[in-house]
Write a protein that binds this DNA or RNA. Structure first.
Lengths: 353, 353
DNA sequence: AAATAAATTGGGAGCGCTCCCATATATAAT
DNA sequence: ATTATATATGGGAGCGCTCCCAATTTATTT
């Protein structure tokens, strides 16, 4: 039922080709016909068929975004929503659309592949994949441009956007040490995701830097979720930590509940630092000291990088590492007993590897 | 570079048409050729071009999902993420893909329309639009199937999925009344979104039902966000409420912080009930009594309904209203002073208008 | 066995667009 | 004027698929 180029052409008394030129803002159309055609398009409210254009041109101006569920409690944590917001925002301004796949575990890899290579999308953003996910190697071998959110260990040919998780974590733990904490535990993230690995390494880095021996009893591994953080903290509490670095704010908030439930005080008895700076971090009681990462910017940069790859000449793979900031709030107080209310933000220099 | 039907046909020694039949699982292909062709497809890892199919068939098996940002603090609240999860999940199992548009305010309506009518999507789900959003009338006049999340007041021809916000809110307030609360305030939602309107009406319904006069001082209007709830609660506190119904959990959590900050006790001094049952509701201190709505199911139903409209015969518009449940936790205690820890869930009968 | 029916297969046309090239028209240079 | 050049315009071909119909093969019936 919808009209076609040919219809518009007939109505405005020109040819299909001319209408196409007008729509695509190409040169070599006289001002008078351009106006005439535009007028008809406006009046009829004509929209060219993008599927047909996609077929003809081989590009759809659609980006895919794949988010594995199951890695974390997908949407309890605002990480993914914010990431999507960033991607979507960049796409909006660059005239791209975004197609979203929440890759449920049951929803097998094969199906994903089916969609990726079906010509519906020009490129794809893969978020926080397991670092050995076969989909990545499969993509690397294909011709489809893609960008990872979260760096990739082995293959240097792969473009990615990430934050400096390791340095961020290290700064957090150093802060705890400066704060006078002696028994600093960690609730690390899963060790099959790069963010989990890097943040744990940052924790170790800080301890090593200050010559503190790592106590295995003070190390637990959660799943980035609040209940996971709660459970880990209960285990840690048996070993009397006086400071805890959690690899996500959700886990930190869960940990704070666990501490609260045993009657201990934060930060007097135990200091807590999280990672992410989700909105709840500034609304908890006490407010949570955390490592802020610019999630929306990550999403935007990933989209922009991908679009660059799609449209641009063949460039070398891009590795973008964004800096983090330590946001100091009440859960980890330098002067014991009297929280500093103001937020001190330590800016960290940007590093681009 | 990717292969086409014709290539597969050549390799397996049959015709394009036969390959097409095999791929689409059509009858009238002999078992032997079917196997032969399937083998080639498997080996080559062939993926048919969906843009081409879309052109030929006039359907893309892609759903659009439009979420207006700006209406609420989009992603602080897990409402939209869960909704997306529901939609995505239904799409996964019905072999559809979902295209997401976060309609930023600057991102004008025209652009959205451009995309909607471009033949890239077979239908669209519009979430929590303002109830006078011109996009809805525009859609209603078009031929594009669409489903609203959140009912529509004026046009009965429009299909939607919603929860029974009004009854849910009413139940919550009745619970406060049964609880012995005398001065029950509300932090209502914005009155240009149907959920905001209905939940406020439910509050009024409950008061009227029990013959309680409505005190305008005890009515405030927030924006569904936590800081909004905090601000509203501060205003309410000047009028000494002993119970508050907030139209979203985020606002309820903000309200609890405001109450806490003035040194009052929950539920002893003020009882609080929220709406949504987001994960944080069961992790707050005290845990939050709230009206649970099945967000993921809403998303799934919306997608299923829409796909039904796309594929099915012309049916009458579907109006699906899901029931809510009152989840009783500690923030609103029946026996003053001694919280009942266990969650009592009052099931409400399903109503389908 | 022939005649009929049913199942299988192939190829043309077309979905709505872009791209390329040929043609027509306007402009500039000789 | 005449040729050369730049600018506008139209139409064919083709992107990779599905759909339809004709042709071929196979199975069933008389």
């Amino acid at each position: 039922m919808p009209l076609t180029l040919e219809d518009i052409a007939r109505i405005s008394g020109v040819s299909r080709s001319t209408v196409s030129r007008v729509i695509n803002d190409e040169p070599n159309v006289s001002e008078s016909t351009r106006e005439k055609v535009l007028e008809v398009i406006q009046k009829i409210n004509f929209q060219p068929n993008l599927a047909a254009r996609g077929l003809a041109v081989g590009k759809t101006r659609v980006l895919g975004m794949v988010i594995p569920t199951g890695v974390t409690s997908l949407f309890t944590d605002p990480f993914f929503p914010l990431l999507i917001q960033g991607v979507s925002s960049a796409c909006n301004s660059l005239d791209y659309s975004v197609m979203l796949w929440l890759a449920e575990p049951e929803f097998e890899r094969r199906t994903i592949r089916q969609i990726l290579y079906s010509g519906l999308i020009d490129g794809v953003i893969i978020s926080s994949a397991l670092n050995d996910d076969p989909i990545i190697n499969s993509l690397a071998e294909s011709r489809l441009p893609f960008v990872l959110i979260g760096r990739h260990l082995s293959n240097q040919q792969i473009s990615y956007v990430d934050v400096d998780n390791r340095i961020g974590a290290q700064q957090a733990v150093l802060h705890l040490i400066r704060n006078g904490r002696k028994r600093i535990g960690t609730i690390a993230g899963p060790q099959n995701v790069i963010a989990g690995i890097d943040r744990y390494q940052g924790y170790l880095d800080a301890l090593h830097e200050r010559g503190i021996t790592v106590d295995p009893d003070l190390t637990t591994f959660g799943d980035f979720t609040d209940p996971g953080g709660y459970a880990c903290m209960r285990r840690l509490l048996e070993y009397n930590p006086d400071g805890v670095f959690a690899a996500s704010d959700s886990m930190a908030l869960g940990a704070m509940r666990a501490i609260h439930d045993t009657g201990l005080k934060i930060p007097e008895d135990i200091a807590v630092i999280g990672f992410d700076d989700i909105p709840q971090a500034s609304q908890s009681l006490p407010t949570l000291t955390t490592v802020r990462q610019p999630i929306i910017r990550e999403g935007m940069l990933a989209a922009e990088t991908l679009i660059g790859m799609i449209e641009g000449s063949p460039e070398p793979p891009r590795h973008i590492i964004l800096p983090t900031e330590l946001v100091i709030r009440d859960s980890c107080d330098f002067h014991k007993g009297q929280p500093l209310r103001k937020e001190v933000i330590l800016l960290q220099k940007q590093r681009d590897r």
